[in-house]
Deep mutational scan, measured.
Amino acid sequence: MFKRLMMVALLVIAPLSAATAADQTNPYKLMDEAAQKTFDRLKNEQPQIRANPDYLRTIVDQELLPYVQVKYAGALVLGQYYKSATPAQREAYFAAFREYLKQAYGQALAMYHGQTYQIAPEQPLGDKTIVPIRVTIIDPNGRPPVRLDFQWRKNSQTGNWQAYDMIAEGVSMITTKQNEWGTLLRTKGIDGLTAQLKSISQQKITLEEKK
């Protein structure tokens, strides 16, 4: 169930391209415009997507990853294993993690069937560096609404905000991946996880038929 919630949630996290980005210092504006741009692209490019579902990787690479804190999220997933990894191991892992996100997020976007969304009203940021933004996803086919909290983090150097995690039903996506990959990290280390991520990233994206 959580895996499905995570995939549905990713439908609204794909941010804007650099040329049309919203105010990078306001995570609420980023979330709002990102959702609108993403849904528009999914709707307008269905012919290309249906002809070649792996085209979704391109959308992810162009529109999402430049505005997601990939390395920060990847380091959180590694936890204690990050500090013990060599620079070469980290570089290989982050490259594999990025390719994994292209496949995983692309597969999530393949679930698009006309969903709509509501974003919580903007709250004062103050001096906060981590801000959760509640998004409610509404399914046109009558499924119950899904309420999610996207975690946005302020870059201490640039002042810009980027998304790095999502919490559904009190469970963090980062925590879920830590639990899912924990045994592999304990037995085969970061190299074993890197190899698995490379394998997963090679899987073809498949479209979910409308139910």
Results as ranks from 00 to 15, higher is better:
residue 79 G to R: 02
residue 191 D to P: 05
residue 190 I to E: 08
residue 138 I to G: 14
residue 87 P to S: 12
residue 198 K to E: 13
residue 14 A to C: 09
residue 193 L to V: 13
residue 192 G to A: 15
residue 183 T to H: 13
residue 68 V to Y: 02
residue 21 A to G: 10
residue 151 Q to S: 08
residue 38 T to H: 03
residue 75 A to N: 00
residue 161 W to V: 04
residue 127 D to P: 15
residue 201 S to R: 11
residue 200 I to M: 12
residue 156 S to K: 03
residue 138 I to P: 15
residue 209 E to M: 10
residue 195 A to V: 14
residue 77 V to Y: 11
residue 197 L to A: 14
residue 210 K to T: 15
residue 155 N to E: 00
residue 31 M to K: 01
residue 206 T to Y: 15
residue 139 D to A: 13
residue 121 P to D: 06
residue 178 Q to L: 01
residue 19 A to I: 02
residue 167 I to N: 06
residue 143 R to A: 05
residue 41 R to V: 05
residue 199 S to L: 12
residue 159 G to C: 07
residue 90 R to K: 14
residue 80 Q to N: 04
residue 56 L to A: 07
residue 93 Y to W: 04
residue 198 K to S: 09
residue 68 V to D: 03
residue 138 I to W: 11
residue 150 F to R: 00
residue 91 E to L: 11
residue 24 Q to K: 13
residue 73 A to V: 03
residue 51 A to Q: 11
residue 148 L to I: 15
residue 172 S to P: 04
residue 134 R to K: 02
residue 180 E to L: 02
residue 209 E to H: 10
residue 80 Q to E: 01
residue 77 V to P: 13
residue 101 L to D: 15
residue 187 T to C: 10
residue 32 D to S: 09
residue 97 F to S: 08
residue 4 R to V: 13
residue 138 I to R: 08
residue 59 I to M: 09
residue 152 W to G: 01
residue 81 Y to I: 04
residue 120 A to S: 14
residue 78 L to S: 03
residue 47 P to D: 05
residue 75 A to Q: 01
residue 156 S to W: 01
residue 66 P to E: 12
residue 122 E to Q: 12
residue 195 A to I: 10
residue 61 D to A: 10
residue 145 P to V: 04
residue 77 V to I: 04
residue 38 T to V: 14
residue 138 I to E: 07
residue 126 G to H: 13
residue 92 A to L: 13
residue 116 T to G: 14
residue 194 T to N: 11
residue 148 L to T: 07
residue 131 V to H: 09
residue 194 T to M: 06
residue 163 A to N: 15
residue 209 E to D: 10
residue 139 D to K: 04
residue 53 P to C: 06
residue 75 A to S: 11
residue 202 Q to D: 14
residue 13 I to A: 03
residue 137 I to Q: 15
residue 130 I to Q: 02
residue 55 Y to F: 07
residue 9 A to T: 05
residue 205 I to D: 13
residue 184 L to M: 12
residue 207 L to H: 13
residue 56 L to Q: 15
residue 50 R to Y: 05
residue 104 A to N: 03
residue 161 W to G: 00
residue 132 P to Q: 13
residue 8 V to Q: 01
residue 141 N to T: 12
residue 130 I to W: 02
residue 72 Y to P: 00
residue 134 R to G: 01
residue 18 A to C: 11
residue 145 P to T: 06
residue 102 K to P: 12
residue 3 K to D: 01
residue 67 Y to K: 04
residue 158 T to G: 07
residue 48 Q to C: 05
residue 9 A to P: 02
residue 108 A to E: 04
residue 7 M to H: 01
residue 88 A to W: 10
residue 109 L to M: 13
residue 65 L to M: 15
residue 121 P to Q: 08
residue 99 E to A: 10
residue 109 L to V: 14
residue 74 G to S: 06
residue 108 A to H: 03
residue 35 A to M: 15
residue 189 G to P: 03
residue 7 M to D: 00
residue 205 I to E: 13
residue 73 A to Y: 02
residue 19 A to F: 06
residue 1 M to L: 01
residue 154 K to R: 09
residue 178 Q to E: 12
residue 182 G to V: 11
residue 14 A to Q: 10
residue 90 R to F: 01
residue 82 Y to Q: 01
residue 5 L to G: 01
